[in-house]
Amino acid sequence: MKSSLYIAFFVTILCSSFTLKKNQVEANRIETAQSKIDRDSIIVYAKQYLGIPYLYAGNDPKKGFDCSGFVNYIFKNYGITLPRSSSGFKNLGTKLAPEDFKVGDVLVFYGYRNKNIVGHVGIICEANGMHSKFIHASSGKAGSVTISDLDSDHYSKRYYKCINVLH
């Protein structure tokens, strides 16, 4: 009787170790997939939507994008889930120093009326610190997905932070 209990115990331990290893392998696979995302391919993918009209609450290239809908849509293509609202980026990630900005990082801006509320997001497409360019869905003059200069008066005054969402 005792020997069959020992065998059952041994089989349970053995099966558990295989399950743990399988879960660990899966976690490593996901982590590796994210680290292998080519930042330039994100921008190539995003640029195909240049000119798509701005649409409040939009997240569909057939209808239009708002800023967070655009960023969410682009990164979703790479298996990365980001907030659907620009305000959801306020406490997301760690603020990068300008010299650490990379293509594919997300820029977060305050609203143009209120310096306490996050109101806009975009993706760096040319990294050069505070002289970077970014692609975003603009409700302003462009009224569409466009590329803008971070160092323009309009955006430099509203800049809140830049975050890496690909680590």
Rank of each mutant, 00 (worst) to 15 (best):
A97I: 04
L96F: 02
F70K: 01
G58I: 11
V118G: 06
I80A: 08
D66N: 07
N59K: 12
Y78L: 10
V121H: 05
A137E: 12
T81C: 00
G122Q: 08
G64F: 07
H136K: 00
D105V: 00
H136Q: 07
T81P: 00
V108W: 08
A57Q: 14
P98V: 05
V121N: 04
D66E: 13
V106W: 03
Y78I: 03
D105W: 03
H136I: 07
S132H: 04
N77V: 08
Y110I: 09
A137W: 05
S86W: 01
F109R: 01
S85V: 14
E126R: 11
R113A: 15
R113F: 14
N114W: 11
V71E: 06
K90S: 10
G111M: 14
S68R: 02
V103M: 01
G58P: 04
G64L: 09
P61M: 08
I135S: 03
N59G: 10
G64D: 07
P83W: 02
F75C: 06
V103F: 01
I123K: 04
V121E: 04
E99L: 13
K95W: 02
A127W: 01
E99M: 12
N128C: 00
V71S: 06
S138D: 14
Y54H: 12
S139H: 11
G93Q: 03
K90Q: 15
F75M: 00
S68G: 08
E99Q: 14
P53N: 15
Y110A: 09
V108R: 00
K115R: 11
D105E: 05
N77Q: 13
H120Y: 06
E99G: 15
D66H: 00
F89P: 08
G58T: 11
P98A: 02
G88W: 10
H131L: 14
S139D: 11
A97Q: 14
N77T: 11
I52M: 00
L107I: 05
F109E: 03
N128D: 12
I80P: 03
F134W: 12
N116E: 15
Y110L: 10
K102Q: 14
A137C: 15
H120E: 15
F101S: 04
K115F: 11
G119F: 01
L92M: 13
G79H: 05
Y78N: 02
M130Q: 12
N77A: 15
G140Q: 15
F109N: 01
G111S: 15
T94E: 02
N114I: 11
